[in-house]
Design a protein around this nucleic acid. Structure first.
Lengths: 250, 250
DNA sequence: CAGGAATTTCCCACATTGTGGGAAAGAGCA
DNA sequence: TGCTCTTTCCCACAATGTGGGAAATTCCTG
């Protein structure tokens, strides 16, 4: 499969520039290409709006046309639509309410919930936002943020919601590491007495966290000790399926 | 300024594909290029992850690498940082609390507020989410959504918050039209008795609404009749300045 | 403010590279 | 099965992109 050299190089450039903005000669060094070639490619890309000059005058960064094209995949709009059928399926399997949330600033925002058949169940949290460190959906989002963003998050006063809330930065960091390893996290009565929940991250096509999938129920029956790992695995694998449907390839 | 033909064409293709996904021969017709050329370009772009095949097998859409590159401009992360100094400035000018919000599902989520000097003032709404149709920040976001997204929003039960809340879809649509014309909107005691507020939209580099800038105060003193239009204009122009700082060029 | 280094822009001869016509292979449909 | 539409493959040709180098510009630094 032949591929077009100039386009290949143009995207190498875009990749570099996205990583960190730089000028012609630095890029030519990084990619080991003649400066004249880099200059020509960049000027073409600039004409197309794929890169633009930094305000400081020297150096290029990713331009608006790339952002526009990326927006055609509109992740937040499609997230709900994509997830819906999987929620229905998951709620059958775990027999507790399941829902989806998205990051919004330093909170997660619950955008959808599918209830289970049981008359005793957790209220519908749709529309509510909660700090990331007290809910599993937030923790899985936080776990996939860049380090400096996590630093900023933890470098604020963290609210305690119940006696069991974990608010010590070091402890939270340890848990985030576990989340990264396990792909799912249980949180028990740390946000509200009487509620336990489990969540797994949803990834978009770019490989970033687009939100979280969770299931929660009254703590007296959820999770059933025998089913604890099974439920976690079901949530994790549903989340993975939704991620793939969102274009996630990792 | 010479520009590289193949790259030029590659981006024409990306533009078309972003607009609406299609296969080789349709794209070759749209752009009036030989199919073999289009095939070669697309296969190069596919190898780079800039486009990917639709699940249906035939046709291409924008791929993950474009989204990744676009993410390097991370609008939501930078929004707060960019807006902060302008908030400080605006709060001096209007002498009431000002804040920033971002869309989150069908709500707007307040992510920042700067208070004014006056001891009597509106509480800090940071961290709260509210339905778009009862707050001006929400209305300006809604006003710049695609039509079908607005349809979906209005095609649900819309909550009333005060006697003055507008919840009739037709009336809301009219107001949205006004927002598009004026660039700002006042909302008076429709979310909470005693609070009036005004908001203007914030646009990102892609030209999409990234959030909203608002100012709100107690209704007995805000807005001062004589200053009503001036305040609106200050909010509007601050929002425009922030948008430009975010890379908005429109 | 001059002198020097680094960076960007411009030019041009060369042949590598992309081009596009056309044919072959594959899909979809009645 | 035969027809049409789409995708893939092949190849001769030269148009197009390439990169060396030099001029122009910007950026430091003494």
């Amino acid at each position: 499969m032949q591929s077009v050299q100039s386009i290949d190089r143009a995207f190498q450039l875009l990749g570099e520039v996205a990583d960190n903005p730089a000028g012609i000669s630095e890029l030519s060094r990084r990619l080991d290409l003649p400066t004249s070639t880099v200059a020509r490619l960049l000027s073409t890309l600039e004409g197309l709006g794929a890169v633009e000059r930094l305000d400081s005058g020297t150096g290029y960064r990713i331009g608006p046309s790339v952002v526009t094209m990326a927006a055609s995949i509109d992740p937040t709009q499609s997230l709900l639509a994509v997830a819906q059928p999987h929620l229905m399926e998951l709620v059958e399997m775990v027999a507790e309410a399941v829902g989806v949330s998205i990051p919004a600033g330093y909170d997660v925002h619950y955008i959808s919930q599918v209830d289970c058949a049981n008359p005793v169940q957790v209220r519908d949290w749709t529309g509510v936002s909660l700090p990331m460190h007290v809910v599993p959906s937030g923790m899985v989002v936080l776990a996939h943020w860049p380090d400096d963003a996590v630093d900023r998050y933890l470098d604020r006063k963290l609210d305690r919601y119940t006696a069991r809330s974990v608010i010590r930065p070091t402890l939270i960091r340890e848990r985030l590491q576990q989340v990264r390893e396990n792909g799912v996290i249980w949180i028990e009565e740390e946000f509200s007495e009487g509620i336990n929940s489990v969540a797994a991250p949803l990834f978009n096509a770019a490989g970033a966290v687009a939100g979280a999938l969770h299931s929660h129920g009254p703590s007296y029956r959820f999770p059933d000790d025998a089913l604890r790992d099974i439920v976690a695995e079901q949530v994790r694998s549903s989340a993975a399926t939704i991620s793939i449907a969102l274009g996630h390839t990792g």
